[in-house]
């Protein structure tokens, strides 16, 4: 049975508008004009236990609205939403004690207190039994390398350290389901990798279902087998990363490093899209010429030092999907 079921979920926001300038402000006092924007427009999907789903889309697409509804902090206009058999906004307290939420832009740790005291606090709020709590803290400290951080006040942590502590904080009560909203935003490369690795292990070893909202396509590529692509309140794609690629273009890239600089690589089936010294990037359609054939052809005609096949960067694919859908 799916852990999350969302059916025909709709949410419209009313935004007060006024004309610019002082006159507009005065008019606004007497007569308010409202613009209705549809944040969620009949959204449906379901997620099975243990999935790791990337929820992506441009700014303002409806991602955080969805997450807020799923987290029980926003009431939709219509539609069905069941998370582990509960309706989040109707059974808020039992619901939220079973889920973990990390919003990358904010922290649930107490600014002036050492990290461990925030953990103790969450233990009390979530009513985690002492042995379970101790075990979880130990596990988190080991997995996330929190050893020395525990006694540091949160305000003295770097962003990467804070994010690791926030992840631990969201998991102290062993939720079966975790929402991550932009968990790698603003992090340096090392911290990003640490977060990704952790999320991956969490999903694999503990079977925690993860719903990940992000703009970082590397996150998606590294973590998610399944993608939900949303824009203007509608789901545009529900499938794998490969499905996403297929929807945009079949083209692949071959990067060739020649032994010596040549002016031109002649092939009928591949197009040169970039060159940098001896390194040439070709684009080809695997339906017309298979990668081995192309490679064979090149290696027999030129002196090749190195080569590798590359997929279109997912960034470009997503940008293309956004544009293709008139965004």
């Amino acid at each position: 049975m799916p852990q999350i079921v969302v059916q025909d979920l709709c949410k419209t926001f009313r935004v007060a508008e006024r004309d610019p300038g002082a006159w507009g402000a005065i008019k606004g006092l007497f007569h308010r004009r409202y613009r209705h924007t549809s944040a969620l427009d009949h959204i449906s999907f379901s997620i099975e236990p243990g999935e790791l789903v990337g929820y992506i889309g441009p700014n303002g697409a409806g991602k955080s609205t969805t997450v807020k509804v799923l987290a029980g902090i926003l009431v939709p206009d219509s539609g069905v939403c069941q998370v582990m058999g509960r309706t989040p906004w109707k059974q808020r307290i039992p619901h939220v004690s079973q889920i973990g939420v990390v919003f990358g832009q904010r922290t649930q740790l107490w600014w002036d207190l050492p990290v461990i005291e925030s953990f103790e606090l969450l233990r009390a709020i979530y009513r985690v039994p002492a042995p379970v709590y101790r075990h979880n803290v130990e596990e988190m400290v080991a997995l996330l390398g929190l050893g020395e951080l525990l006694d540091t006040p949160v305000r003295q942590l770097s962003l990467g350290q804070r994010m690791r502590c926030d992840l631990a904080a969201a998991l102290l009560h062993r939720p079966a389901l975790l929402y991550l909203d932009e968990p790698t935003i603003g992090l340096d490369a090392v911290s990003k990798l640490a977060v990704r690795q952790f999320v991956k292990r969490l999903n694999k070893e503990r079977g925690v279902t993860v719903m990940l909202t992000t703009h970082d396509m590397d996150d998606v590529e590294a973590l998610c087998r399944r993608i939900l692509l949303i824009n203007r309140g509608k789901i545009l794609l529900d499938g794998t990363v490969a499905d996403l690629r297929a929807q945009v273009s079949r083209l692949r890239r071959l990067v060739v490093v020649l032994r010596e600089e040549k002016d031109w690589i002649e092939t009928d089936e591949a197009r040169v899209i970039g060159r940098q010294g001896p390194q040439v990037t070709l684009e080809f359609d695997p339906e017309r010429i298979s990668a081995p054939d192309l490679i064979h052809h090149l290696t027999s005609a030129y002196g090749v030092r190195d080569l590798y096949v590359e997929n279109l960067p997912i960034e470009e694919i997503v940008a293309e999907v956004y544009q293709g859908a008139g965004m």
Binding site: G72, I73, I93, V101, F103, I125
Partner: peptide, 12 residues
């Protein structure tokens, strides 16, 4: 507007 996130805690 972050006050909504307070509702993500299982508390009154």
């Amino acid at each position: 507007g972050n006050v909504a996130f307070e509702l993500a805690k299982p508390a009154d």
